[in-house]
Every structure is written in C-alpha cells, then in structure tokens.
Design a binder for these strands. Structure first.
Lengths: 145, 145
DNA sequence: ACCTGTTGCAACCTTTGCTGTTACGACTAA
DNA sequence: TTAGTCGTAACAGCAAAGGTTGCAACAGGT
C-alpha cells in the first residue's frame, strides 16, 4: 500500500514541540524539528502549515520566530492530526466506472461504499482514542541503554 | 493517502465469479471479469494470481480454461482478500532514522509502533466481519431504475 | 498432430503522490 | 538596517499502481 509517513512526522513534530514548550521555550523552529526527525525543514514547514490550517498550531515570523501549539497535547488526538495531514479515503473505488449493464458492475460501488464508510468510521474512532499526550508519554517511556 | 483500488477490484472479481458459478458455470475468464470491472484482463489475472497464492482461487489452463473459487463466498472475508492483495503497514515510519541523540527522536518509533499495531489490529477485525457473501448481497440489493 | 482459447508472466510506459531540495520574497525583533 | 525565520513555488527523484503488448505454456477438440 502507498503508506506514507505524514502522520508519523506530524506526531513527531507535535511531541517535540510539546516537550520543548514544557521546558520553558516559547517557540520551536522548523530547523530544530527537522534535525530531530532527520528530514528537511521545508518538509516540516509544509506539514505544520497543514496543522495550522486545522487550528492546532500557530506560527510567528521574523527574528525569534517559530511554531507553537494552540492547545495542550492532551487535547490533541491522532485523529485531529490524521485529518489534517492525510485526507482522502482509505480504499479507492475503480479508476474507471464499472460496466453499468452488469449486475455486479452496477451494484458494486454502492455496496463497497457503505462497507468502507463503516470501516473508516471505526478507524477514526481508534485514532481519536490516542492523544499526543499519550504519544509523548510512550516516547519518554522508551528504555535507554 | 496513496489509496489504491486493489481491494475493490478483487472484491468485484470474487463477487462476479461467485454469482457466475451460482448460475451454473464452472469457470470464469479474466476477459469476462475485466469487462465487468472496466479494466484490462492482465490486471485481473495479476490480482487473481495473488488470491490463488492465498488459497482462495484456482485456475485452469488450456481451452475452456478460467478461474473458480475454492471456497464458498460466505467463508471468504474482506480480511482474507486484503491480506492477499494489500500487504504492508497502514502508516509508514520515518524514511530516515530520526536523531537517536534526541529524546523524542529516540523514543518516537517504538511509541508509534505500538499504537499503530493496535489500530491495524482493529482494522483487521473490522475487515474480518464482512464476508464476500455480504458483499454480493449488498450488490444485488442496489436499486435498479 | 494441429488448432484454438486461455493462463502465466515479463517488459515497458504513464500517471500520481510523497519526499527532498533550492531559491527567494515576506516579515519582524533587535 | 540587519539577521533569522516563515511561506511558498518550482523542480527532481523515487516508488507504486495501473494499463498495455507480446509471447510461451498449456489443454481440450477436431
């Protein structure tokens, strides 16, 4: 499957910023987050831009600029992040319309539509059960050697 | 997300073959299924080949060749089909290893791994609740005009 | 023994989406 | 005015999905 890492990187960034703010800093830069996630600052800015559009973040420009959270980590769920950065359905329909003269070709899309919607609703429910606070707790619980 | 239509096309093919066999035919050809799904026979043969590897189908060659089910539609679930044609995780980790010297970079992958596994387990459970018999019933229940 | 219809499979192309990178204007604190 | 950071466009590289063509392998009918 064309699985991507957008949810992973976004969760990483949010956990990083949350921890950083807890340590007394006001804002975090895309450069700092990119270093931790081992990627390019522009990738981070693009993702955080989508989170800002969803109301989860705000950014300041100019000298001493950077990113900050608009809510506590405990009130942000993986569902909020998922919907912000990973839109679109889990399963795609046919690329070309099936043969509408065939009984199966005619009925398959409505049938699968209903089934897929139920499954995606369950997925959203699961994502909504995990907060970024939970994620950060698990992150800090990783054993160090 | 890079959603693909493999599960959709495979379910379409299975429902088509199941109905066709119920009408007294022994085998179905990739040509017939491709016509119903409005795609190329080779695409169908590739997908059905993966279902055969999973033990859900068998194929005959030569004149009068084609595809047939090895089980009743009622004993095939969407999970069987999903695992046969759509392997790999739902969410990807970072492409490059995060900074292991950073607390978040160090703990993020184990943390997300555990969370993702739970979510995928729930997804599999949901897929397992739907049989191809259910799918075919819904297909035939589509209103005709 | 040949002909015919179908699968099995390799090779290639196009499209799409994600990721990474460079570049540069916009903005703001000092 | 300067310096540091965001905002965003543009482009390249890569991978996966889907479509297409071509052909060998196979098996039933004649």
């Amino acid at each position: 499957m064309g699985a991507n890492s957008r949810l992973t990187i976004a969760a990483h960034a949010l956990a990083w910023i949350g921890l950083y703010q807890r340590q007394g800093h006001e804002v975090a830069t895309s450069e700092q987050i990119a270093t931790s996630a081992n990627t390019n600052p522009v990738v981070i800015r693009r993702l955080l831009g989508e989170l800002r559009r969803a109301g989860l973040m705000e950014s300041r420009r100019g000298v001493g600029a950077g990113w900050s959270l608009t809510r506590e980590l405990g009130s942000i769920t993986l569902l909020d992040v998922y919907e912000a950065v990973d839109p679109g359905p889990l399963f795609a329909m046919h690329r070309a319309l099936p043969d509408q003269g065939c009984v199966v070709g005619y009925g398959i899309q409505p049938a699968l539509q209903g089934i897929y919607e139920g499954i995606e609703e369950t997925l959203r429910h699961e994502l909504a059960r995990v907060t970024l606070e939970n994620v950060l707790r698990d992150v800090l619980a990783a054993p160090r050697y």
